[in-house]
C-alpha cells in the first residue's frame, strides 16, 4: 500500500468512489478523478486504487455513505491543508 498526501490545492477533492461494507466492493475504490480537482493536481492517485485509510482512520467495515462522509469531512476541515490517503492497487478485502 502507498501513503498519498493530497494538498487542498483546489476547491474540490475531485474523486468519485464506489464501494463500502456490505457491497460487492467492500472498501471504497476510486472510479473517477476529475481534472482540476485537488486529487488530480496531486498526481499520485489513480482510478482503480482502493482507499484503506483517510488521515489514519480505517475505512474497513464502513458502509459507503459513512466512508464518503469521512473523506468529505477530511477535505472540509480547516485543521489540515492536506488529506492523507493510504491506498492500494489491490482489492485486499476480497
Amino acid at each position: 500500500s502507498t501513503l498519498v498526501r493530497v494538498a487542498k490545492s483546489a476547491s474540490t477533492l475531485g474523486i468519485a468512489i464506489e464501494g463500502g461494507a456490505n457491497t460487492r466492493q467492500p472498501l471504497p475504490r476510486i472510479v473517477t478523478i476529475q481534472r482540476g480537482g485537488s486529487a488530480h493536481n496531486c498526481g499520485q492517485l489513480r482510478v482503480g486504487q482502493v482507499i484503506l485509510e483517510v488521515n489514519g482512520v480505517s475505512l474497513r467495515g464502513r458502509e459507503h455513505r459513512d466512508a464518503a462522509r469521512i473523506i468529505a469531512e477530511a477535505f472540509k476541515t480547516k485543521e489540515r491543508d492536506h488529506v492523507d490517503f493510504l491506498v492500494t492497487e489491490f482489492n485486499v478485502a476480497l
Binding site: 468512489i17 464506489e18 466492493q25 468529505a72 476480497l94
Partner: peptide, 16 residues
C-alpha cells in the same frame, strides 16, 4: 463463499 459474494449488492457512487 463465491456465491455469497455474488449476492452482495453493487455500491452507489459518490462524487467528492
Amino acid at each position: 463463499v463465491r456465491e455469497k459474494r455474488l449476492t452482495l449488492p453493487p455500491s452507489e457512487i459518490t462524487m467528492l
